[in-house]
């Protein structure tokens, strides 16, 4: 009986709380708030907060056109794999200080898991056979390369700082990082970690492909890039993945840098974490979205590999010398 119960709880974890349903609602709300705040900043009234929900369910009801030139299986399978991988990442990220599913993946694995949703979009676009999708996926790949270097530097510096304190000199597992922060204060307060935190906040819009860095899905230039040939339910699933990605990355930032402020009760922690994520999205995604214009792809690459990487490098060097 115990196994059945524990597997049910396990299933509950996957499908309900930190899993699919929680991500769905959190992702949709965050995107809704993001669109509303951007509108408010442009003195517009902006769509209702639940607009992404309406978009998602409308797309679920629309007809799915599969172009004749497309490779049908990959075309339909790509969005589903992308969504599944995105939700799986969310399961590993500890909700503030209490990791729910720990012991499966660590920081480097998360770095690689973040590739899968982007790859799902790339292979979806490439399977549709449209030239717009070809240009879109080429830009998306350059965006991934651009965001990789800062993320690598940030993760290595976090691993080094936590490793120093833990004595093993190196610690990649998220649960240890959460435990360390619960023990002696969140990493954000350490001097060497502030540049890494800033770099991480600058990487989030790039990684999720939000406005200034959305050369890959520029609806004005290349007709929604990789999603040019998608309609109906697959398109809805892609939009959902995009929404959950925004939430996951901000949750990752909270887990890495603001770990220590948990209260122990899981649900309350989740609400606090969601609130912090919303505040972070407003400042670092909506404000940047409302204020800047879209970057060309090589400006984006140069920006990430020079400006943001040096900030992250500073924190790595500081962490290296044990600050």
């Amino acid at each position: 009986m115990a196994i059945v119960y524990s597997s049910l709880v396990y299933l509950g974890y996957i499908l309900i709380f930190p899993g699919f349903l929680f991500c769905f609602v959190a992702g949709m709300l965050i995107t809704g708030i993001d669109r509303k705040i951007v509108a408010k900043m442009q003195k517009r009234v902006g769509p209702p907060i639940l607009q992404p929900m309406y978009d998602f369910f409308k797309l679920m009801g629309k007809e799915t056109i599969i172009p004749a030139a497309a490779n049908k299986t990959v075309f339909l399978a790509a969005p589903i794999v992308g969504l599944a991988a995105m939700v799986v990442i969310q399961l590993f990220i500890p909700v503030i200080s209490t990791p729910i599913l720990y012991g499966t993946a660590d920081l480097i694995v998360i770095l690689y898991l973040l590739l899968i949703p982007a790859l799902a979009e790339i292979y979806g676009g490439s399977a549709s056979g449209s030239p717009y999708a070809g240009v879109g996926l080429s830009r998306e790949m350059v965006t991934i390369i651009a965001c990789e270097l800062p993320l690598v530097l940030i993760f290595l510096s976090v691993a080094k700082t936590v490793g120093n304190a833990m004595g093993t000199g190196l610690c990649f597992s998220l649960s240890d990082i959460a435990a360390y922060q619960a023990a002696n204060g969140s990493l954000m307060l350490k001097a060497s970690m502030i540049p890494a935190a800033i770099a991480m906040l600058l990487v989030i819009p790039g990684e999720t492909g939000n406005h200034p860095f959305d050369a890959a899905e520029a609806e004005t230039e290349i007709c929604e890039g990789m999603l040019a040939e998608y309609s109906g339910a697959p398109l809805g699933i892609y939009k959902l993945t995009h929404a959950i990605k925004t939430f996951t990355l901000t949750a990752l930032f909270v887990a890495l840098f603001l770990g220590g402020i948990g209260t122990g009760i899981v649900l309350l922690d989740a609400l606090i974490e969601f609130a912090i994520c919303v505040v972070l999205t407003i400042i670092f995604i909506s404000l940047v979205h409302a204020v800047t214009a879209r970057l060309k792809i090589e400006q984006l690459f140069k920006y990430y590999w020079t400006a943001v990487s040096t900030i992250a490098l500073i924190s790595l060097v500081l962490a290296w010398f044990g600050m």
Binding site: T104, A105, D106, V109, G163, F172, S173
Partner: peptide, 10 residues
């Protein structure tokens, strides 16, 4: 190892 990765679980 400094981290954990169980592919089967994942």
């Amino acid at each position: 190892m400094a981290g954990t990765w169980q592919p089967i679980h994942w």
